[in-house]
Amino acid sequence: MALLTVANITASYGPTQALFDVSLTVKRGGVTALLGRNGVGKSTTIKSICRMLPHASGSITFDNKPLTHLTSHQAARLGLGLVPEGRRCFNNLTVQQNLTVAERPGHWNFSKVTTLFPRLAERKNQQCATLSGGEQQMVAIGRALMTNPKLLILDEATEGLAPIVRQEIWSAIRTLKETQNLSILVVDKSLKDLSKVADQAVVLSRGATMWSGAMADLTDSVTAQYIGV
C-alpha cells in the first residue's frame, strides 16, 4: 500500500477549474517527482493534498486514511511536511523560532536540522527576513522536518537560487532519502537533478496526469511533449 494515493482529483479556484484529473502515488520510502510546465497544476495538487484547497471529486488517501474531510492542520498532523512554493518563512521570527514554532517530537530536532544545514546554527537568532534566499529555503525545509513528517513535500525548493546553493539543497534532499529513508514528493524544474533522487515520476499537463511510471522510464518524447527543456 502506497503512503500517499491521489486518485482522479478535480479542484477549482472559485469559478476557474485548475485540476481536471490528477492521480499520483508516493510509496513508503519512495521519492516521486511531480513534473509539468508552468501553470499545469503542480502547486494546486500540493495544496489539495495539504487541504489548503478542497478538491471537488476524487480521493486523497494518506497513510491509509482519507484526507477529504480533514482540515489543513489535521492533515499535517497525520504526517505531511510541507515546504511550500515561495518558501513562506515567518519573516518576523528568528531562524530558531521558525524551526521550533510547529515542532512535533521525533527524530528531527533543532540540533539535527542544524547538522543538515550548518548555516542555520550560525544564524539561529537572526530574523528570517534578513536571510538570503538559500538560507530561507533551508529554514523552510528545516521547519517542515521539525514536524517529523512521514512525507516531505517540496514545491520548487531550488527555484531562484544560485547553482552552488541549489547543489547544497539537492545534497540535503539526497541525504534525507538515503539516510532517513524519508518519503518525498518533489516538484522541480531540473530533470537532471530530479533523476538522481526520484524513483517515480508523474507528469501533468493542463490539470491532468498524462504519464506516470518509473523515473528511469521517462522517455525523451514524453519530456519533450509535456515538460520541455
Binding site: C50, R51, M52, T71, S72, H73, A76, R77, L80, L82, P84, R88, F90, N91, N92, L93, Q97, N98, T100, V101, A102, R104, R143, A144, T147
Partner: peptide, 24 residues
Amino acid sequence: TRLGIQIQAGEEDREMISALGIDI
C-alpha cells in the same frame, strides 16, 4: 513562549501555520 510565537506566525501567514499542523 511557543504559544506567543505561534500567534506571531499566525499573524503573518495563517494558511502556512495551519499547514504545519497548528490549529489556528
